[in-house]
């Protein structure tokens, strides 16, 4: 990697001060699993001058309940979220989403806030400098979105405008389901941003001197049914082709509350409001589940190669509502000594 100035921030205030001092030319490093790729491939027009290490900022690694709210420190690692008994029991969709990220080694260091703030995975945007790149594009403020006429198999089917890269975060999908809020610290003090509003067409709402300090989720009644389904070509490592998180409350056989969040289909996380509304007061059965899928994707406008994502999203949602398991349990493989030798 090209050299950079390395700063160890020990408090949120130090980190904010360093961010402010570098005025957009510094990057925060928590788990580093996204940042290292950005630094190594040098795909951005400007290389960061400084890296601010926030790993050692004290008191940002927690999962706790305060006054009915669930609070998760920004630096809480995905492996801890995935294995937290509290989250497993009450916020299962979040634990599942964290478990669905990348690989064990990544989850051991990657943080929740880092997962939310990671950069997009668009193949044009991230094309590496050292093999004839980087490539200019709308997201970099220079030219059109190349995915529109290019290979857009992983791009947005909903809400794409200037840039069709999708939000790559799995945990954002679950957090949006829970109406999660980000507590953001900056030079001007703290503010709250709803996770579902966090992503903008070309990035996110964080100012140059801001960082996510905490993620807060409202209380969940214990009787909800939650799912997180992530469709990928293969199980670990991959970013979602489509993900769907659902939270359903059923009272006397009737859906009293339905929340549906879709991931990897749009630049941000999508809450399927029409489908949620439709399900409330209804019985969830194959017909209503299928209808919810239609409503959730009604606004989809696919590009040349990504209409398949609509079908997958509808299917994932339908199956989530009907309670299908996300994937079949991994099968045991033959354990005897191979090869089976047949001697003539």
């Amino acid at each position: 990697m090209k050299p950079f100035i390395h700063i160890n921030a020990l408090t949120v205030a130090e980190a904010v001060a360093a961010l402010a001092a570098y005025d957009g030319r510094a990057r925060l490093n928590a788990g580093g699993t996204d940042l290292m790729g950005l630094l190594k491939d040098e795909f951005l027009p400007e290389y960061p001058q400084a890296v601010i290490n926030i790993k050692n900022v004290a008191g940002l690694d927690y999962i706790r309940e305060e006054q009915g709210m669930l609070q998760i420190g920004a630096l809480t690692r995905l492996s801890d979220i995935a294995s937290s008994p509290l989250l497993r029991e009450r916020y299962g969709a979040l634990a599942e989403a964290a478990q669905a990220v990348a690989s064990p080694q990544i989850r051991n260091v990657a943080t929740l806030a880092g997962n939310l703030c990671q950069d997009v995975r668009c193949c044009y945007y991230r094309y590496p400098r050292h093999i004839g790149g980087p490539i200019s594009c709308a997201r970099k403020g220079n030219g059109p979105c190349l995915a529109v006429k290019g290979d857009n198999r992983n791009h947005a089917i909903l809400e794409g405008r200037k840039c069709f890269a999708v939000c790559p975060s799995d945990t954002a999908v679950a957090l949006a389901l829970f109406d999660g809020q980000l507590l953001v610290a900056g030079s001007a003090g703290e503010r709250r941003i709803a996770v579902r509003d966090f992503y903008t067409p070309l990035g996110n709402q964080l100012g140059k001197d801001e960082l996510v300090r905490e993620i807060e989720l409202p209380a969940i009644t214990a009787s909800t049914r939650q799912t997180f389904h992530k469709f990928t070509l293969r199980k670990p490592i991959d970013f979602a082709v489509v993900s769907v998180a659902t939270l359903i409350t059923v009272v006397d056989g009737v859906c009293s509350d339905a929340r549906i969040a879709l991931g990897a289909v749009a630049p941000g996380v999508v809450r399927a409001a029409a489908a949620e509304e439709f399900l409330r007061g209804r019985t969830i059965d194959p017909a209503s589940a299928a209808r919810a899928g239609e409503l959730a994707l009604a606004g989809a406008r696919p590009l040349s190669k990504n209409a398949y994502k609509i079908e997958i999203a509808k299917t994932l949602l339908k199956r989530a509502l009907l309670g299908h398991p996300p994937a079949k349990p991994s099968q045991g493989i033959v354990h005897d000594k191979c090869p089976h030798v047949k001697t003539k």
Binding site: N8, N29, N53, Q105
Partner: peptide
């Protein structure tokens, strides 16, 4: 952990 994604100074 992945040593290629870890800064030594950290």
């Amino acid at each position: 952990v992945l040593s290629c994604m870890t800064l030594t100074v950290e």
